[in-house]
């Protein structure tokens, strides 16, 4: 898939995803070792974006399974199309039981869900299992089978094995501790907040109109906010939002008024805003 780590960085950068060394190395290894990639990290650092970017650079189809509380086999794996099966039965009244039975459990009546879709077919795919921590523990058992052997068993059809292993990315916000068994099957990647230099490049890439000096100040202020003990520290997404806001406001340098007026874009709790204002020596809000 990728010849080297630098190749990963370069190709991801072409799609607009600037990867840190750590991210590029892990993606490279995941492709090389053929293991799923478990990505953890705070909200808004680009976990989901990573999967999309990998799909884009490898020319794969992105298959996405969004997890939520109560997601189950019929939403994740496959489901029989009951309505269609009933129609089929009532259409062929004079058939014998054997004919009907072999027919209604055929491909035509199978509704493949993301996990099955990702395994079937010869085209390259990236399987994104988003917010894995939201799913129930039972769901993990299902994932274990799929992720370790890349096969799915449908009782009526037999076992379907992947002809071409998908590149799997699981994301988690650490809302619930994922089971050790699932973690063991994956390469682990923690995407934290980027280094100053990388974040500056991200801002420049996403908000091209922003001046270099202003981008640098923005990143420095965000860095200072992250060092504070806030309830919700600003993430990369907030940095970009803020940069866009500043661009809209027409600011060419940061000053007290601008920061004070736009602090709401980066901080989402009133006590965080107050604390940050005190720390940044802003006049009272």
């Amino acid at each position: 898939m990728f010849p080297s780590v630098d190749d990963v960085s370069a190709r991801l950068a072409e799609t607009g995803y600037l990867a840190s060394r750590q991210v590029a190395t892990t993606v490279f290894l995941a492709a090389r070792l053929g293991k799923p990639l478990l990505v953890e990290g705070p909200a808004g650092v680009g976990k989901t974006e990573l999967a999309k970017a990998v799909a884009e650079v490898t020319g794969s189809r992105l298959v996405r399974l969004q997890c939520y509380e109560g997601v189950d086999e019929s939403r994740a794996l496959y489901e029989w199309n009951h309505a269609k099966q009933l129609l089929r039965i009532s259409a062929g009244r004079d058939e014998t039981w054997d004919e009907a039975r072999t027919d209604i459990f055929g491909e035509e009546f199978l509704l493949p869900r993301p996990l099955l879709t990702a395994i079937r077919g010869a085209e390259p795919k990236v399987l994104l299992i988003d917010e894995t921590d939201k799913a129930d523990v039972e769901m993990e058992g299902l994932l274990l089978e799929v992720l370790s052997d890349f096969q799915v068993t449908v009782p009526e059809l037999g076992t379907i094995t992947a002809t071409r292993k998908p590149f799997v990315v699981l994301t988690s916000n650490a809302g619930r501790e994922l089971s050790e068994a699932l973690r063991r099957r994956c390469l682990f990647l923690h995407i934290g907040f980027p280094e100053e230099e990388l974040e500056r490049r991200i801002v420049r890439l996403k908000v091209p109109g922003l001046g270099e000096a202003l981008a640098e100040s923005v990143v420095r202020v965000i860095g200072a906010l992250r060092a504070m003990d806030l309830r919700k520290v600003p993430s990369v997404a907030e940095t970009i939002d803020w940069a866009r806001t500043l661009l809209e406001l027409g600011a060419d340098t940061l000053d007290e008024t601008v920061v004070r007026d736009s602090l709401g874009v980066i901080l989402k709790h009133q006590d965080d805003v107050l604390k940050a204002a005190a720390k940044l020596d802003l006049d009272s809000l």
């Binding site: 780590v5 060394r21 750590q22 190395t25 290894l29 070792l33 650490a174 973690r183 390469l187």
Partner: peptide, 22 residues
Amino acid sequence: ALGLADRELLREGLAATLLHGT
């Protein structure tokens, strides 16, 4: 796969394979 030439690559590679949590 990564070779021993770049120590930081090696560090990230080993961390990715050996660790399970933040």
